[in-house]
Computed example of a mutant assay.
Amino acid sequence: MAWRGLTWDHPRGYGALRAAAGLQALIDWNTHSLEGFESAPIQDICSRYDLVVLDHPHLGEAIAQSCLRPLDEVFDAKDLARIAAASIGRTYDSYHMDGRQWALPLDAATQVMAVRADLLAKVDSGHAGQLNQDTPTQAAHGPVNVPKTWDEVRALSASTGKVALSLAGPHALLSLLSIAAAIDPTADLRNGDRWHTKATITQACELLLELAARSPASVRALNPIGLLAHMTTHDDVILCPLVYGYVNYASASLAQPLAFHDAPSAKPGIPGSILGGTGIAISRRCEPDAALREHLLWLMSEATQTGFIPLHDGQPSNVASWADPQVNALSDDFYRQTTRTLAAASVRPRHDGYIAFQDRGSALLREGIAAGTSASQLADALAQLFADTHSSSRTPA
């Protein structure tokens, strides 16, 4: 009888897993929506599935409810150490909490910049001259210059009205946190015991409010998948400065493939971004056998990450895979052009209560955008909302 697994319903989420499982009829992979992946109660999912593809902010809730199996109970320490050393950025560490490893980093992603290079090439030369000249990308019209800083993004938004924000679901808050990470790259929120200073969040809210006011209405309700798909078929969005990268939308098979680049920085330097991607976890109901252990280790191997996974619509987490020339050639340099952002990406808070905060904080931001709430008021409201997820006061970062 096959193990039961749950992932999300996009080819990046299920393509490689189903293809790999089909080789041995080992795992029956089911899917749920991106919204389910982002917000569904982890305890309920783990009560019904043996293997769960999840995001690192769910760890606090999962640990509090004892619904995941620590991976040191399943794998040898040397195997975990090898996977840790081979994983890009903080992808492996993001699933390490309370001294134990809770998931294997199957897939790596972070918020990056998505660009319609053909449309950016058409921006009038007067404005294009203001953009940084160090980041060319190719378009049908020749090389174009991609914004590198938030000031450059702001200028492009003001001159075209075609710079979109990802604001649906939890992504309003995630976009805000990426802006805040660019403003203060030293802030470490991963343990959930700290929040950004009011000055940082107020500055981030000011920029978010300004860009949201000009973001095309056609994409305001779309999740990252819908937003990226829209950009490949419509001409009303030139650029989205922060959206979770999906290599699938860089495919040359699309009529208008997207180019992906590093997220903006507050000033020339470190791009600000909030880590996403997925980990594969084992629920407490599952008693892994040798075949399942070997299958999961095979998924994490460099050969599989570099060969099998990209060829089946997946997005690897192996650092060598991200640098591989053939993998990049198949994706218009998606990996090479966003590696710096992924390597620097910040880990979200992971305490029990964060997922609800992420949803409520995003709703608060959308309401504030619609109502014209000031950046300072939004910053105060978010700080209070974050404090409400704890039973005791915390110290700001």
Score class of each variant (00 low, 15 high):
Gly5Thr: 06
Gly5Glu: 06
His10Leu: 03
Tyr14Lys: 05
Gly15Ser: 04
Ala16Gly: 06
Gly22Pro: 10
Ile27Trp: 03
Ser33Gly: 15
Glu35Arg: 11
Ser39Gln: 14
Ala40Pro: 03
Gln43Trp: 08
Val53Leu: 14
Asp55Met: 12
His56Thr: 00
Gly60Tyr: 09
Ala62Asn: 14
Ile63Ser: 06
Leu68Val: 10
Pro70Ala: 13
Glu73Ile: 10
Ala85Asp: 15
Ser87Ile: 03
Tyr92Ala: 13
Asp98Ala: 14
Thr110Ser: 15
Gln111His: 12
Asp118Gln: 03
Leu120Val: 00
Thr135Gln: 09
Trp150His: 09
Gly161Gln: 09
Ala164Val: 02
Ala164Gln: 01
Gly169Thr: 03
Leu173Met: 10
Leu177Met: 11
Ile179His: 00
Ala182Leu: 07
Ala182Glu: 03
Pro185Trp: 00
Arg190His: 06
Arg194Gln: 15
Trp195Phe: 09
His196Gln: 05
Cys205Arg: 02
Cys205His: 02
Leu209Gly: 09
Ala229Asn: 15
Ile238Val: 14
Gly245Glu: 12
Tyr246Val: 07
Ser253Tyr: 08
Gln256Trp: 07
Leu258Thr: 02
Ala263Asn: 13
Pro268Leu: 06
Gly269Tyr: 03
Gly272Val: 04
Ile274Arg: 05
Ile274Val: 14
Gly277Val: 01
Thr278Asp: 08
Thr278Pro: 00
Ala281Tyr: 10
Arg284Cys: 04
Pro288Leu: 09
Ala291Met: 07
Arg293Asn: 10
Ala303Ile: 10
Gln305Lys: 02
Gln305Arg: 01
Phe308Thr: 06
Leu311Asn: 14
Asn318His: 15
Pro325Cys: 11
Asn328Gln: 09
Gln337Lys: 13
Gln337Cys: 04
Arg340Gly: 11
Ala345Gln: 04
Arg350Ala: 01
Asp359His: 01
Arg360Glu: 11
Ala363Gly: 07
Leu364Trp: 08
Ala375Asn: 04
Ser376Glu: 15
Ala381Tyr: 08
Ala383His: 15
Phe386Trp: 12
Ser393Phe: 08
Ala397Thr: 14
